[in-house]
């Protein structure tokens, strides 16, 4: 399992890519692709489209050069963020073309039940984030998780839970403020 054994290797490979060593892209891919594909699949709910988003992520990385800055979060988190944004772009362009995958189908994708191996490998940052999310109200925590994993907007979250848009916004904003306070403690 190449993903989790070497966060430092991944950061180093991204560094070499940034320095112009194009061949290190393959190493970046080998060290990160399964985890990057996981977020693409979680958001898009369709294997073929998730593989396309994975493809776009690494092609963009090769074209734009790595701008990963070590001090700001983990290397895998940085790649996951890029892949998540590209997946959400795809999701929304699909919605605007009227090709929405039903929510039920998207939710059938395996999500949050980590294996024992993953639990062991889970980084300190993730454990801390889980802990802080746990201090929020269920509805705040649920909305933040849905936004992250399903790419849902305020509007969609409000509709799904049958509350006015303004109410959902203030719940989530209060939740985000508390989350930041907790993470900074």
């Amino acid at each position: 399992m190449p993903v989790a054994d070497s966060p430092d290797d991944l950061a180093a490979a991204l560094g070499r890519l940034a320095a112009g060593d194009a061949a290190s892209l393959e190493q970046v891919y080998q060290l990160s692709a399964p985890q990057v594909l996981a977020i693409c699949l979680r958001i898009l709910g369709d294997r073929a489209e998730a593989e396309d988003a994975l493809h776009d992520t690494y092609v963009r990385l090769a074209n734009n050069g790595s701008r990963y800055q070590g001090g700001r979060g983990s290397a895998i988190g940085w790649l996951v963020t890029m892949a998540r944004n590209l997946s959400i772009d795809r999701l929304r362009s699909r919605r605007s073309r009227g090709l929405s995958v039903p929510v039920a189908a998207a939710e059938s994708i395996p999500d949050g039940e980590p294996t024992a191996e993953q639990q062991l490998l889970k980084q300190e940052a993730a454990t801390r984030l889980d802990g802080c999310l746990g201090t929020l109200d269920d509805i705040q925590q649920g909305a933040i998780r849905s936004a992250f994993f399903n790419g849902q907007t305020y509007q969609q979250l409000a509709e799904e839970r049958g509350v006015p848009l303004g109410t959902m916004k203030s719940w989530v904003r209060r939740g985000l403020a508390r989350l930041k306070d907790c993470l900074e403690q």
Binding site: M1, V3, A4, A22, L25, E26, Y29, A33, P34, Q35, L37, A38, I39, L41, R42, A50, E51, L54, H55, Y58, V59, A62, N63, R72, G73, S74, I76, G77, W78, V80, T81, R84, P110, D111, G112, E113, P114, T115, Q118, K122, Q123, A125, A126, R128, L129, D130, R145, F148, F149, L179, K180, L183
Partner: peptide, 29 residues
Amino acid sequence: WDARLAPLAADLPPVEPAPTTWPHIAASV
């Protein structure tokens, strides 16, 4: 905020890409 939230994805079980994906990426690059 990206860095704060990204660790959420650590909960997702990794998914092995199709063997054809890397050659496709390399060809596109």
